[in-house]
Design a protein around this nucleic acid. Structure first.
Lengths: 243, 243
DNA sequence: TCAAAAGTGTTGACTTTACACCCATGA
DNA sequence: TCATGGGTGTAAAGTCAACACTTTTGA
């Protein structure tokens, strides 16, 4: 490369200046925080504090700080809203329609996370966030209904392929609880015998030789997810298919 | 809601001002433009014009304009680089590590698109973009190798579930070409008889009663993708599984 | 003793895989 | 006539879906 050609190359410094005009789009993360309780999938929502969407709920989110990674921003939102940090978190999609936010041009990166609602460290009264059954949500502020639906769609794909669903359950759970959770997420009924066969083939579970307590019927065995499958984001794995 | 409470709600106008500090992150789209030629999957790359990455290739991309949607930005990049507009395009993931770009904080939304290289409208000499076989790419500027790999991973998922692969082929193609393309993308060898059976079950193809020409062997029949499957982005569909 | 859920196998239907021969064409 | 790929079916293995009865516990 000649010296002249070298001079014509942009440097980080010159490009920074020439592109300053474009540094005027806001960028946020929005978190679809999902939990499971009373046989229902629930999501954390907050009353929108924008006049334009007064009365509607919205997803928790925040602007990304210039010195923070995308994942760090969504972990920060999660930590601020739930008090939890060691949670499953996954990027789903970025939403950037021009008029999606009344304050101006704001592009948002959507994440979903899976929470064990019964976790004793979970603090949802820190804020004005509350759990809402996802099946009862008809309308949200901004494009948050679309974001929620996109995350739920992704979640359905993920639970069929990876052992992520366990992030929604307590450490110890029965096969009935697990099956009911699959049914809640997928919106189908599953055959108990076939379900147990398929789960057993996966070899995800550890039989801890404990039983349920305080159930008004014959107690079931309790299981834990094997350590090697306790991931906080998806890498790879085999496919799980139900009838 | 009381009048006082109403006054405490943010308006779009007040929020815009309070958040101005955050409007200092650059946001771009990067396009993984894929084509298929000589039994190889290829991607369009340009010599990086940044001194920091001198000698390396990078993906085409550009800053998103404040008045343009994400998809519009990636279509614009595509149109500028290839001259094509009616192409398959899909968002894959957003990359936003703090130091991914030497010019400053730049978050990029990655898209991949599928191009018929033999399309007569394709103009790749408009720019300094050229086709590179994806299997020969070891290193790219920025985090573009990671972006490329992520897109290829998504592409492999998509071709198993949706009839998107046809965007890489000419309008009329033989079953051999189609099978070789699947093999190139998935990196596996497929059994010819089983492949044809599975494709036939999908009922994606129209037998147009034409034959190949100028092949040094018995010519095969030509097919077209049925109109109802000619989508320029993925919606839904059944799963295709190979041996 | 009743209600509720736990736990457990088999069969038939379907899907997937492995595999080989003759045919049509161009060189 | 040779080389190349086109075109086609079957059988065995594996997977999936449907289905019922006995057991255990708490109330």
């Amino acid at each position: 490369m000649t010296e002249k050609a070298l001079q014509q190359l942009k440097t980080a410094e010159t490009e920074k200046i020439s592109h300053l005009d474009y540094f005027n789009i806001g960028i946020t993360v929005d978190c679809v925080i999902l939990g499971y309780e009373e046989k229902e999938l629930k999501v954390q929502l907050i009353k929108s504090d924008m006049q334009e969407y007064s009365g509607l709920y919205s997803l928790p989110g925040d602007f990304i700080r210039p010195d923070e990674d995308l994942e760090a921003a969504s972990y920060r939102v999660l930590k601020e809203k739930t008090g939890l940090d060691d949670v499953y978190l996954e990027q789903v999609r970025t939403f950037g329609n021009i008029f999606r936010h009344p304050s101006g041009r704001v592009i948002t990166v959507a994440y979903y996370s899976l929470i064990d609602i019964k976790n004793h460290k979970l603090q949802t009264d820190l804020n004005e966030l509350h759990w809402h059954p996802v099946n009862e949500i008809k309308k949200l502020a901004f494009d948050h209904k679309l974001i929620l639906d996109t995350c739920l769609h992704r979640l359905r794909q993920q639970v069929m392929e990876h052992p992520v669903i366990f992030n929604l359950l307590p450490e110890k759970f029965s096969l009935r609880e697990l099956q009911e959770l699959y049914e809640a997420i997928l919106g189908v009924e599953l055959d108990r015998r076939n379900f147990r066969k398929k789960i057993s083939i996966k070899d995800w579970l550890l039989d801890i030789d404990e039983m349920e307590h305080n159930v008004p019927h014959r107690p079931g065995k309790l299981y834990m997810l094997k350590k090697q499958f306790r991931n906080k984001s998806v890498k790879t794995g085999a496919v799980l298919q139900f009838a």
